[in-house]
């Protein structure tokens, strides 16, 4: 893994105009190609943190750098070309008369050429299986499909950094699997991904690193195994590791000498009959 830092926070504080102090001194560096899960209870500051990474929020004190750009000094428009943010609720962004126009909007805004736009729309539609809906009004699609269109519309902008806020909420199992597949694909394409989620299975399966927020502070940072194996940390934050991880821990199941994180790993471990010491 290359060590090029792509996102950097220095003593990041954020206080909303209402007076709520949602971040209190976060220091964090994220390297290129990392897949980072952001977990924590509701209201712990996850959304507030990641909104700093495309300039939607500016620090009330401290600094945030995205690709070396100080977010205080740049417009969202400039940062969003590097960092794409997928909002939780697709109804907050869909507006165009057709899915095709919806996918063209972001790329056109950042000044892609007509050929590039066509190519990005084709890639996005192909990956998300949206070809047959390209001429439909997005509001006349089902909710999961709409959410897919929302994610695809950011994918079409080709950002190096991908921020997903609760990407699987409201999706059925199959569509949620598609999100996991998307993250894998983004990883293969060499992108950096941040995932805010309560879906521990998704986090365990996709992330190379997990950070834990609690009461506006960063209190945990490590590999998924380290975080999910840290009972004390999880208890403090009222989070539960994925079921499969807990079960494997209980019965001492091992995969390549480590506790399995996903069903696939666990199945392999059982087949090999690998157990702890």
């Amino acid at each position: 893994m290359s060590k090029n830092i792509i996102i950097k926070c220095e003593d990041l504080h954020h206080t909303y105009p209402s007076g709520v102090s949602a971040l209190q001194g976060v220091d964090l560096a994220i390297a290129e190609r990392e897949i980072v899960g952001v977990i924590g209870q509701n209201g712990s500051g996850k959304t507030t943190l990641v909104k700093h990474f495309n300039g939607l929020l500016k620090p009330t004190s401290g600094q945030v750098f995205v690709k070396g750009i100080n977010t205080r000094e740049a417009e969202i428009k400039e940062i969003s070309r590097h960092a794409g943010y997928v909002f939780q609720n697709p109804n907050h962004q869909l507006f165009a008369g057709s899915v095709r126009k919806e996918l063209e909007f972001g790329p056109a805004n950042i000044g892609m050429s007509a050929e590039e736009i066509e190519e990005r729309v084709r890639l996005a539609a192909d990956f998300f299986g949206l070809e047959e809906f390209l001429d439909e009004n997005p509001y006349r699609l089902s909710f999961p499909l709409r959410k897919t269109v929302g994610i695809a519309s950011i994918y079409a902008m080709d950002p190096e950094i991908f921020i997903l806020d609760e990407p699987t909420t409201g999706l059925d199992y199959t569509r949620a699997r598609m999100v996991a597949a998307l993250i894998k694909k983004l990883q293969d394409e060499g992108r950096t991904v941040l995932i805010v989620s309560h879906d521990m299975m998704l986090i365990a399966e996709c992330c190379t690193r997990v950070i834990v927020l609690w009461n506006s502070r960063l209190i945990g940072d490590g590999t998924p195994r380290e975080i999910f194996g840290n009972r004390e940390l999880l208890e403090k934050t009222n989070l539960a590791p994925p079921q499969i991880f807990r079960m494997a821990e209980e019965i001492g199941l091992q995969h390549n000498g480590k506790t399995p994180l996903s069903v696939d790993e666990a199945v392999e471990a059982v087949e090999r009959g690998e157990r702890a010491g």
Binding site: K51, L56, I76, K77, R81, F87, Q93, N109, M157
Partner: peptide
């Protein structure tokens, strides 16, 4: 409130302010 969220969602897609 919805409107404010929508404006930021669209600005994330590089919409003109």
């Amino acid at each position: 409130k919805e409107m404010n969220i929508i404006l930021s969602a669209q600005r994330s897609r590089a919409m003109q302010a």
